[in-house]
Measured scan of single mutants.
Amino acid sequence: IRCIGVSNRDFVEGMSGGTWVDVVLEHGGCVTVMAQDKPTVDIELVTTTVSNMAEVRSYCYEASISDMASDSRCPTQGEAYLDKQSDTQYVCKRTLVDRGWGNGCGLFGKGSLVTCAKFTCSKKMTGKSIQPENLEYRIMLSVHGSQHSGMIVNDTGYETDENRAKVEVTPNSPRAEATLGGFGSLGLDCEPRTGLDFSDLYYLTMNNKHWLVHKEWFHDIPLPWHAGADTGTPHWNNKEALVEFKDAHAKRQTVVVLGSQEGAVHTALAGALEAEMDGAKGKLFSGHLKCRLKMDKLRLKGVSYSLCTAAFTFTKVPAETLHGTVTVEVQYAGTDGPCKIPVQMAVDMQTLTPVGRLITANPVITESTENSKMMLELDPPFGDSYIVIGVGDKKITHHWHRSGSTIGKAFEATVRGAKRMAVLGDTAWDFGSVGGVFNSLGKGIHQIFGAAFKSLFGGMSWFSQILIGTLLVWLGLNTKNGSISLTCLALGGVMIFLSTAVSA
């Protein structure tokens, strides 16, 4: 259960009878995928790494000078000259100064003066180019299975845990398959586009800190620079940016070097996208990844198990997540596992009318040892309800109150669905055939309105939902006002479609 501690969480529900669903994975976010007769899966884009970055340009932001020398000439005696002028490691300046009897010249006039100092770069920052084909995306998957609280967001041991898996995709191999043991396998067909235009970005490294910066900004930095990788004795261009020549006297000129420019660069980098280094690879934390999940090989585990009949206890007080759902960790005293956990939410304890829904599909106890633990997640209705676990006299209950409203949740879900469709863009549509167009249209309606429909009408039977949709269509056909007619027709059509397409 990876997503319960992530604030940016998206719930995606598969269409009834569908074998695939489109998701948008982004750094700092987590996606929970639910479908009829399929286990619930949490998917998170953990890291995006980039390798084989080529150094484009380096800037010196802290330097020192040494070996200063000057040469001067009297008027009419030609130009002052130093051998160091031809050495690229030196920074030199030529000027004219007033000369006369007082400073060793027989004539009054302008004399030539040249001053040089050896330039040494102490600290530099480097910009590297990123090729999209060198990106690698690491995705962690977790099935809502027989897990306890100690396994949440624990990325170790996934090789031997059938509840978890790690997959890596690249532009050259965008397809992967996550093996989930008894739950089958989940196929991923990803489109490795981060949403960032790397043709316009460089990877900047300064003092063990890293950013993504725009090329134009990078090339306009007014500091000494050299092109390409460091060859040991780089040729620094624009050395004068960190060196200041003071007022010249008759035979000498003082040279000083400016202080470190790291603070000024940090100020200019305010708002830039931060990154990290992992050995020789860069780690990015921006952008998104679009994936199509193929769920035809994914299956529920323990459908044929019998119900657990022994007593359950709450190991922890049920807690609310950031998303309005409830996490419950229970301990089973029996030894008759594997068995299914009898769990439901009810409005009252007399009729036990089921409300809400299970995020953890078909929760089971897989071990036959005593005191096995299991964590599950529920989506309670707004208002008061009861969490009921167990059967008969051994069942345990917990009162729950959820604040908020169904309308607010439906609106929030619609906005999130619209954002998801905007990110998917043209990849969500198939114009290759008439059937493809209608299929894409259905998927689009489901992406945007599916979660809201589930919130508003999830407790009704599909037949009642179709009746309401048919009534809206009838009202649309018999209303003389054009805008009201079109609105009723659209709402009725969407409702009829979703009542037959969205899983219960």
Rank of each mutant, 00 (worst) to 15 (best):
R2C: 08
C3N: 05
N8M: 10
S16V: 01
T19F: 08
E26A: 03
G28F: 02
G29F: 13
C30W: 07
T32Y: 03
A35M: 07
D37G: 15
D37H: 03
D37T: 04
K38G: 01
E44I: 03
V46T: 15
T47K: 07
T48F: 08
T49G: 02
S51G: 13
M53S: 00
E55G: 01
R57S: 02
Y59Q: 06
D67R: 02
M68R: 02
A69W: 07
A69M: 10
C74L: 02
T76R: 02
T76C: 08
Q77L: 01
K84R: 15
K84L: 07
Q89G: 04
Q89T: 05
C92E: 10
R94G: 12
T95F: 05
R99H: 09
G100C: 05
N103Q: 04
G104R: 04
C105A: 04
K110I: 06
K110T: 03
C116F: 09
A117Y: 03
K118S: 00
F119T: 05
F119I: 07
T120W: 07
K123L: 00
I139M: 12
M140Y: 14
M140V: 06
S146I: 02
H148R: 05
G150A: 15
T156C: 03
T160L: 05
A165T: 03
V167T: 02
E168K: 05
E168Q: 03
T170A: 13
S173R: 03
E177F: 08
G181M: 09
L186V: 04
L196A: 09
L196C: 10
S199H: 01
D200F: 02
L201I: 15
L201W: 01
L204A: 12
L204M: 06
T205F: 03
T205D: 05
W211S: 03
L212W: 13
V213L: 07
E216F: 07
F218V: 10
I221E: 04
I221L: 14
P222D: 11
W225I: 05
H226Y: 10
D230V: 14
D230Y: 04
T233D: 02
W236C: 06
N237E: 08
K239N: 10
A241H: 13
E244C: 01
K246L: 01
H249F: 10
A250C: 08
E262H: 09
A268V: 08
A268E: 08
A270H: 13
M277A: 02
G279M: 09
G282M: 12
F285Y: 12
S286G: 14
S286F: 11
R292K: 02
L293H: 02
L293D: 04
K294Y: 07
K301I: 11
V303N: 01
V303C: 00
Y305Q: 11
F312S: 12
F314Y: 07
F314M: 05
T315M: 15
T321V: 04
V326K: 04
A333F: 07
A333V: 15
G334A: 01
T335G: 13
V343Y: 01
V343P: 03
Q344S: 14
Q344E: 04
M345E: 01
L352T: 12
L358D: 06
I365D: 04
E367L: 01
T369N: 15
K373G: 10
K373V: 14
M375V: 02
L378S: 01
D379A: 04
D379I: 03
F382M: 09
F382Y: 09
G392I: 01
K394F: 02
T406V: 14
G408K: 12
K409A: 15
E412V: 14
A413L: 14
A418M: 11
A422H: 01
A422G: 00
G432H: 15
G432R: 13
S433I: 02
K443D: 10
I448M: 13
F449K: 10
A451M: 13
F457Y: 12
F457N: 09
W462V: 09
Q465W: 10
L467R: 03
I468W: 11
W474L: 02
W474D: 10
L477P: 00
L477A: 03
L477T: 13
L477V: 15
N478R: 07
K480C: 07
I484H: 09
S485I: 08
L489P: 01
L498Q: 10
V502F: 10
